[in-house]
Amino acid sequence: MEIARLLHTFGGPMLALFGGIGVRSVGTLVTGIGSRTATVDFSDAPRPCKPYRPERERIVSGDPAQTVSFAYQSEDGHFLAGTWTCQPGKWHIEFAQNEFVHILEGVVVVTDGNGLAKTYRAGDAFVSPAGFAGTWDVRDPVRKYFTLGGPPG
Rank of each mutant, 00 (worst) to 15 (best):
V127P: 00
G12V: 13
K144G: 08
G123A: 12
Q87E: 14
F79T: 09
L7W: 12
E105H: 13
F95G: 03
G113A: 15
A117T: 07
R5K: 15
A125D: 11
V40W: 06
T67K: 06
P51G: 03
A16E: 13
L29D: 01
I21T: 14
W84P: 10
Y72E: 07
V107N: 15
G82M: 02
Q97N: 06
S128N: 12
I59P: 01
A122Y: 11
Y145T: 12
V127S: 06
P88F: 05
Y72M: 03
V127L: 03
A122V: 15
G113E: 14
S69P: 04
L7N: 08
R24S: 15
P46M: 07
H92V: 13
R143H: 02
A81Q: 09
I21H: 09
M1V: 03
L6N: 14
I93Q: 04
G131S: 00
L7P: 05
Y72W: 14
R24I: 09
Q87A: 05
R53K: 11
S43F: 08
I33M: 11
W136K: 04
V101P: 02
Q66M: 14
A4D: 05
L29Y: 12
P141C: 01
V108M: 12
V26Y: 01
E2Y: 13
D41K: 09
G150I: 02
F10P: 08
T135H: 07
L6G: 03
G34E: 00
T111E: 05
T135R: 09
G123C: 10
I3M: 08
A4N: 03
A16C: 12
K118P: 00
S74V: 04
W84D: 07
A71S: 11
A133W: 08
P141S: 09
P46Q: 04
I21P: 07
S74K: 06
G149F: 13
I3Q: 10
T85M: 12
Y72C: 09
L6H: 11
G149Y: 13
K90C: 14
F146A: 06
V30H: 09
G22R: 12
D140M: 07
V40L: 10
V23S: 00
K118E: 13
T39G: 14
L29P: 02
F42N: 04
F10I: 15
Y120Q: 04
R56F: 01
S61V: 01
W84T: 06
R5I: 12
G106I: 10
V110L: 03
Y145D: 07
D44P: 00
S74R: 08
I59S: 05
P151R: 14
T147G: 06
S74Y: 08
P54V: 02
T135Q: 07
F100P: 08
T31I: 14
L6F: 15
G113Y: 11
R58E: 11
I93M: 13
Q87V: 05
D137Y: 05
P64M: 05
T31Y: 11
H102R: 15
Y52I: 06
I21K: 04
M14W: 15
G89H: 01
Q73I: 15
Y145V: 14
K90S: 10
K90P: 00
E75Y: 00
Q66C: 14
F18G: 09
H8Y: 14
T31G: 10
R139A: 02
V26A: 01
V60M: 10
G22T: 08
L80G: 02
F100N: 13
R143G: 08
F79M: 13
K118A: 13
R58C: 10
F18A: 12
P141I: 00
Q97E: 14
K144W: 01
